[in-house]
Design a protein around this nucleic acid. Structure first.
Lengths: 224, 224
DNA sequence: CGGTTAGTTGAGTGCATTCAATCCCAGTGG
DNA sequence: CCACTGGGATTGAATGCACTCAACTAACCG
């Protein structure tokens, strides 16, 4: 459940002195704004201070697949292809970031062995995460997808407390695009789970009444 | 189209001397055999000499999602979680491999700066690939998925020749599990493309008659 | 020649979608 | 204070795409 890599979320373990050495000016982003877009020449790597960023791909006809949510402490805008962003980063909530010059980041990690290992471990961890997500997208039914999402997100928030109530900071549309469903299907599925007495829905807050049953619906995937 | 990382497919650039230093005994696998299974204690990292290996996850009820196909020259069995394989590797064709002791691989990469960079670049490249695949699974219709697959696979084979005919070494079931569809849907979709005059189907060989039209069906995703 | 396995095709079903209406709430201005 | 507005969420009705179940064909091998 608690991936070991989480411990060294790139930068956290640096300590304030080494962090200062790397950080550039701080920035704020309004919910919905793009931090960077696919195909644009790469800018700095962004470290999220507060808020949530989605990494996604938008097709020419408007369809969008959210690949991952990035939380405070994580880096985004890392992946590039020939000097251009591979995907797009969008503020799901209001977000504040600070920037790393890409070249400086590269030089800095090259100079510190522990950092190169942290980068490697983080990439491997992300690779595992997106792979699990691909299984969700390719194989699970709507109910299973939503249940999996709630379990995953509940586990995330549950880290600090034992409360079974989950705040969903993102809009239904974001959940839908993450799960490869439509807004309506997500909404309907939440209603079904509510009518089954498994959860309680209150706009942005979901209260898990029957964690065991929820987990069994998401069962196909052990844990995240 | 040609990811720069391809150039340094881990190990190829090592040169015969350094390769010998790393390799263990060779192994052969029959089509369908598992090279390793999810949750099993990790063994060596396997380098594919010939054949194709699928990396997949199988759910308790038998549903299977193939996450990636690995070809000759690539390493598989790399990802682990707490000393256990994260996914499963299966021989899609007959396969021969040679093995790397995991600890030796680790020590060896740690000792060579260029190798650590190759590992990092390969992980980033795989991350990008599976992300694109997630978009396919989450957003595309059956026709778009199959077209995307054919384009992707055609580009792979096309590297050596200009021939528009694609040999599909994997069974329909493998394609289906890769694309998150059923065998029947894959078969039907190929038939539709055939009746549209876009391809010609002959069991394992697909001849692309109208590459432009095929690409436009897969259009949503530029290239792979 | 039967037996087996992979692939194709047909018929019918169901789940998620599309289209559309309604609700809820926060923000705004009369 | 209340009506109006707009965005997000929910719910309903109807459609359609991919699925399930099933039959059939082709190829391969004993």
């Amino acid at each position: 459940m608690n991936c070991p890599v989480r411990r060294y979320n790139v930068c956290e373990p640096l300590g304030p002195d080494r962090q200062r050495e790397l950080y550039e000016h701080q920035q704020t982003w309004k919910r919905g704004q793009y931090l960077y877009r696919e195909g644009y020449p790469v800018g700095p790597i962004l470290k999220i201070i507060t808020g949530i960023v989605s990494v996604s791909k938008t097709l020419p006809d408007g369809r969008r697949q959210i690949l991952d949510f990035f939380f405070a402490g994580e880096l985004c805008g890392y992946l590039e292809t020939e000097g251009r962003y591979t995907f797009e980063g969008q503020a799901i909530t209001d977000v504040t970031t600070c920037a790393f010059t890409r070249s400086r980041f590269k030089a800095f990690t090259a100079a510190h062995d522990d950092l190169t290992e942290i980068v490697r471990a983080t990439l491997a961890w992300k690779l595992e995460g997106i792979s699990r997500h691909a299984v969700v997208l390719g194989q699970l039914s709507a109910k299973e997808r939503v249940a999996t999402f709630l379990c995953w997100f509940g586990a995330r928030s549950g880290e600090r407390g034992g409360t079974p109530s989950v705040r969903l900071p993102m809009a239904r549309g974001d959940i839908a695009d993450y799960l490869g469903l439509t807004i309506e299907t997500v909404s309907r599925t939440l209603s079904k789970l509510r009518m089954l007495g498994i959860i309680e829905v209150s706009d942005t807050t979901i209260t898990v009444l029957d964690a065991a049953r929820l987990a069994s619906l998401a069962s196909p995937l052990d844990e995240h």
